[in-house]
Design a protein around this nucleic acid. Structure first.
Lengths: 250, 250
DNA sequence: ATAATTAATGAAAGAAAATGATTGATTTTT
DNA sequence: AAAAATCAATCATTTTCTTTCATTAATTAT
């Protein structure tokens, strides 16, 4: 499908709104237009005061309402989560089929996804908003909606999950423990997480440092089943390293 | 079936309302008119300020590069929609299992639901927010998320829908016509609407007066399959009354 | 009803716009 | 200073646009 000029420019602006700054290369990949065309678009959009041209790409105009939304602001450890999210997003490759778990850690990564030809499945209603804003093909599991977290849980969602197979999944978790593995407080969520990990070729758990050593109610899986992405070396780093793959981003 | 000039132009506008931007090629395919004719239509529609011509197609007027957000769109005909929504909500009885279609008409009714012991299934992501805010047990269909309307469409959603049976369903619609029945511009949405109506003991279509006499792209069902709830007597009121149940709330 | 008139349509040709590739200049990084 | 990346400018190609004209459909007058 070929995009209309206007569509492409709209897309660039949407992307910019999410990312603050975009590189020309990214835009070329995402829009599948040539470099020349993207340059022309950026120059035009700058001329009508919709963005600021910078070497290698473009930036959002300052003073535009680009403050993070309420819900994002309320997230704790936002810096760490952003860092983790950026790295997680970089793991995604063109053509991938991805599962992104509901949660405050995982939602951060969506902003930093720069691939276009991917499919994302999620159980988080909050996630799907961001996903579709980015013009990525998004699927949501069906079933009962858990009021507090705006996530899908339970058998209905589980059944829906079964239809998919993933290249990668990115999970949030409440506790990580050498012996007790990944744990979460809600058993209905736990089953879903467990199954998503099983259905993925590669599983990643996004967890800031505060999650290490914690044990919550229900076991999701052993820590060796997923790569842990975190922001600083936890206590017993070496022991974790022996048992599983753990990536520290700084 | 050959279309009248005016019908074709109305169709273009309806399509545009849902898609934000349309390509000439698409319009040629859909309307089966020639490129020349479509061009003429677009030029005319632009001249009467109904759309903005862009290279390769046309775009909704609205703010140039500021997307009309969902909440803004919601404001159209709000008084009528509120009135209709209030009445629709009053039809719900304790213990009911309800389907509420995605859309700006149907979402209004959620505010006015005063029963608690009910279950609501919907394909609208926006709907589910309101539903869970009200502490009502909410289910959402799974599947592909349509970017523009934040609604679930397609075969996946259809399969999910099949699991349920409803006491009542409340549907939005784009066109109501004595002969062409209920119509909507998106064929993937149409199938879903169609099936939801079939799965319900009682079906209601929520439509303000502007929908009468309109024909959009895809047929959903005959008008006798659902009770129409509207805010004022349409032209040919008696003819409608002969063919179906129609409730006018004032 | 039939003929004359007007409006709507589709096809085609040349003009205009958008695009992608290339080249050499400029900027940034090493 | 050299290498790499980004840039503006240019040109050939593709796509879309405007204009024109012949044909068909609808309307009006006879």
């Amino acid at each position: 499908m070929k995009l209309l000029t206007e569509e492409r420019q709209q897309m660039i602006l949407n992307l910019l709104k999410n990312k603050e700054i975009v590189k020309i290369n990214e835009l070329v990949k995402i829009t599948k237009a040539s470099e020349s065309t993207i340059r022309r678009d950026l120059n035009y959009l700058e001329s009508i005061n919709e963005l600021k041209r910078v070497h290698g790409g473009a930036r959002l105009l300052k003073g535009r309402f680009n403050e993070p939304s309420y819900s994002e602001k309320q997230v704790q450890n936002i810096k760490e989560k952003t860092l983790i999210g950026k790295y997680a997003a970089s793991l995604i490759e063109e053509g991938d089929c991805i599962y992104i778990d509901a949660g405050t850690s995982t939602i951060q990564m969506i902003d930093y996804i720069d691939k276009k030809d991917i499919v994302i499945v999620t159980n988080g209603l909050k996630n799907i908003d961001k996903i579709s804003e980015k013009n990525i093909e998004g699927y949501i599991l069906g079933g009962k909606v858990k009021k507090k977290t705006k996530a899908l849980v339970g058998s209905e969602a589980l059944k829906n999950l079964e239809k998919y197979r993933f290249d990668k999944c990115f999970m949030g978790i409440n506790g990580i423990h050498l012996e007790y593995g990944f744990t979460t407080p809600d058993s209905e969520e736990a089953i879903l997480k467990q199954r998503a990990i099983e259905l993925s070729k590669n599983a990643y758990v996004l967890a800031d440092e505060s999650k290490f050593g914690e044990i919550t109610f229900v076991n999701v899986s052993d820590i060796k089943k997923a790569t842990i992405i975190t922001n600083s070396e936890p206590e017993n780093y070496k022991k974790y390293k022996n048992k599983t793959t753990i990536k520290v981003v700084t």
